[in-house]
C-alpha cells in the first residue's frame, strides 16, 4: 500500500514531502495541504492537522483525496506533532496510507458473498423448473401422451439453458475467466449485434428496441466480454419494461447507444422507459440479485457488467427515475485496454 508523508507548518503549507507523494500528487512543496490533497481553497472539515496543532496529540481520520491524474483515493491519515525542545508544536507530520485497493477488495468480497446467496436462490428456482419438467414428462409417459412429454421436455431444455447462462455469468464474476483482449474490436458493432439478437424478442413483448451507433474507433477490447456486458444491460432493460405496471405508457422502448466522447472515450448506453429502480433497491443495484422476477436476466447481470467495465479500465453508472425509466452508461477508454 502506498504511504505518503508530508510535513506542514501552522499555515498548512507543505514543507517536506516524500518521493511517493511527489509521484502521485506532484511537487506541491510550499502549497497548502488542502489544496495539494483535495484541490480545496479552505482547510478541510475535521482536519487532523489542525487538531494536532491545538492539543499536541496524534489524530487520525479517513479522507478521500484526488491524485494528480484525477483519480480519487481513500486514505487513512495520521497527524503527528513535531515539537521543539520546549515541547511547542512547530509543525505536523502527516502520514497517509492509500487504502483504495483494500476498500475495493472489501467491496468485491461483499459482492461475492451476496452473489453466492443470490445464486443459491436462483438455482433453487431452476431446480424447481427442472423437477417440474421431469414431473410433466413422467405424466406424459404414464398417460402415453406425446404432447405432454414434448411440453415437459421443453421445460427441461429451457431450464438447462438458463443454468448454462447462470454458470457463464458466474464464471465472468469469478477469477476463472481471464479477459481476452484483441485488437480492432469495434464496440459499435458489438452493440449492433446484440440489438439484432434481441430485436424480435423485444418486439414480441411490445417493446421497441432501437440502436443509435455513431462511428467509434476500433480498439483493444475483449469482444466476448463486451457482448456479455451489452446483453446483460439489454436483458435488464427489457425486464424493466415488461414489469412496468404503469398503465399510462403507450409504448415501451429500449435504446442502445454507442458513441465517442470528445475525450475519445467509448460510451455504451442502454436506456429504457420502464419501471425504474425503486429508491429502496438503489443501493443493491450493483451488489445483488436485483432481478425481482426477471426472466431475461440471470440476476448476476450487473456484477458482470461491472466486472467487464473494470477489466477494460472503464466504469459503470446509471440514472434512474422510478416509474419513468433507467439509463445505464458504460465508459471505456477509447483505444480499449492498453497493453
Amino acid at each position: 500500500m502506498p504511504v505518503y508523508m508530508t510535513v506542514q507548518d501552522r499555515s498548512y503549507r507543505i514543507l517536506e514531502a516524500n518521493e511517493r507523494f511527489r509521484q502521485d500528487f506532484g511537487d506541491r512543496v510550499g502549497e497548502h495541504c488542502h489544496r495539494a490533497y483535495k484541490g480545496r481553497e479552505n482547510i478541510c472539515p475535521g482536519c487532523p492537522v489542525e487538531r494536532t496543532f491545538v492539543d499536541g496529540q496524534v489524530h487520525s481520520s479517513e479522507e478521500t483525496v484526488v491524485t494528480r491524474d484525477g483519480r480519487s483515493a481513500s486514505m487513512i491519515v495520521h497527524s503527528v506533532p513535531v515539537t521543539d525542545e520546549k515541547g511547542y508544536v512547530t509543525s505536523v507530520m502527516v502520514v497517509s496510507t492509500n487504502i483504495t485497493e483494500v476498500k475495493r477488495m472489501q467491496r468485491q468480497l461483499a459482492l461475492m458473498g451476496l452473489a453466492v446467496a443470490g445464486t443459491a436462490h436462483r438455482i433453487k428456482n431452476l431446480l424447481m423448473g427442472l423437477e417440474g419438467g421431469i414431473f410433466v414428462v413422467n405424466t406424459g409417459f404414464e398417460t402415453r401422451d406425446e404432447a405432454t412429454i414434448a411440453e415437459g421436455w421443453e421445460m427441461v431444455e429451457r431450464n438447462v439453458g438458463t443454468v448454462s447462462r447462470v454458470v457463464k455469468d458466474l464464471l465472468y464474476c469469478s477469477k476463472e475467466r481471464e479477459p481476452r483482449f484483441a485488437e480492432d474490436v469495434n464496440p459499435g458493432a458489438v452493440v449492433r449485434e446484440v440489438h439484432e439478437l434481441f430485436r424480435a424478442r423485444a418486439q414480441a413483448e411490445g417493446i421497441e428496441l432501437r440502436a443509435e451507433t455513431n462511428t467509434v474507433s476500433p480498439g483493444r477490447f475483449d469482444r466476448e466480454a463486451l457482448q456479455n456486458l451489452v446483453t446483460n444491460l439489454v436483458a435488464n432493460a427489457i425486464d424493466a419494461c415488461r414489469f412496468d405496471p404503469s398503465p399510462d405508457k403507450h409504448e415501451h422502448c429500449v435504446t442502445l447507444r454507442c458513441f465517442s466522447t470528445d475525450a475519445g472515450e467509448a460510451v455504451i448506453e442502454v436506456e429504457d422507459n420502464g419501471v425504474g429502480i425503486p429508491d429502496d433497491a438503489e443501493h443493491k443495484v450493483f451488489e445483488n440479485f436485483f432481478s425481482t422476477k426477471g426472466t431475461e436476466g440471470t440476476g448476476l447481470g450487473l456484477l458482470v457488467v461491472q466486472k467487464v467495465a473494470e477489466e477494460h479500465g472503464g466504469s459503470v453508472s446509471y440514472v434512474s427515475n422510478p416509474g419513468r425509466g433507467t439509463c445505464f452508461r458504460v465508459v471505456l477508454p477509447g483505444a480499449g485496454r492498453s497493453q
Binding site: G132, T139, E154
Partner: peptide, 15 residues
C-alpha cells in the same frame, strides 16, 4: 405468465 408454471400446474391439476 410463465410458460413453465402454466404447463406444470395444468399437468398437475389435470392428473
Amino acid at each position: 405468465d410463465e410458460r413453465d408454471m402454466q404447463v406444470y400446474l395444468r399437468t398437475l391439476f389435470c392428473r
